[in-house]
């Protein structure tokens, strides 16, 4: 998939090899989507229907993850 055999061993991508350059945008997209999804999970477990609410104050998500919200250290109640 890439020409880097070992992470950390060879930080600079080889400019001469085109697959690296071609996949730069794709890699950025993958990383961004992952960060977005992870932050969304963090938000729905820890914050939604408490301090702010994205889809109305139904309290369904809040009540479902309620115990973990407390136990993970988020403010609640």
């Amino acid at each position: 998939m890439t020409s880097i055999p070992l992470h950390g061993a060879n930080p600079v991508p080889e400019i001469s090899i085109s697959p690296e350059a071609l996949s730069r945008g794709r890699v950025l997209a993958i990383l961004s989507i992952t960060v977005f999804l992870a932050l969304a999970a963090y938000y729905f477990v820890g914050v939604d229907e408490g301090m702010t609410s994205l889809f109305g104050k139904t309290m369904v998500i809040h009540e479902w993850v309620h115990d973990s919200r407390h136990f993970l250290g988020f403010p609640c109640h």
């Binding site: 992952t34 960060v35 999804l37 992870a38 932050l39 999970a41 963090y42 729905f44 477990v45 820890g46 009540e63 479902w64 993850v65 309620h66 115990d67 973990s68 919200r69 136990f71 993970l72």
Partner: peptide
């Protein structure tokens, strides 16, 4: 309920770590 929250949180942190 608590399983959903703990697994979602931990998986999200693992993904961010990656």
């Amino acid at each position: 309920g608590i399983a959903t929250g703990l697994i979602a949180f931990s998986a999200a942190m693992g993904a961010l770590l990656a």
